[in-house]
Amino acid sequence: MQLEKDVKITNKLGIHVRPASRIADTANKFKSKITFIKDGFEVNARSIIELLTLAAGQNTAIKIKSEGEDAEAALQAIVNLIESNFEEKNNGNKKRDRGFTGD
């Protein structure tokens, strides 16, 4: 089975080290091959390092491809993770107008 979904990265810092590690952890729980695509550039979601090289900051549009027997569950888990802003505290779009602290 092969599925695709377009998502937007909404957390403040985008796919930085910790979110990349969360994504890779999640991807590794499934058998399906999960690919992140940004502007035609494809990376393997099991690899933290590859995810980082996407340089996907806030508001980046990403296409997620999931291929394999558990493609649907895997895709859903990844999408949930992204939509929850990686469960980071005070990091989402909603809180943005409280002030951007920067790095």
């Binding site: 080290v17 910790r18 590690s21 590794n28 099991r46 690899s47 933290i48 590859e50």
Partner: peptide, 16 residues
């Protein structure tokens, strides 16, 4: 602490 953990995971990145 999560950064150190992330480095540990990067080291073990199966794809790399």
């Amino acid at each position: 602490a999560p950064i150190v953990e992330a480095h540990m995971k990067m080291l073990q990145d199966e794809h790399v």
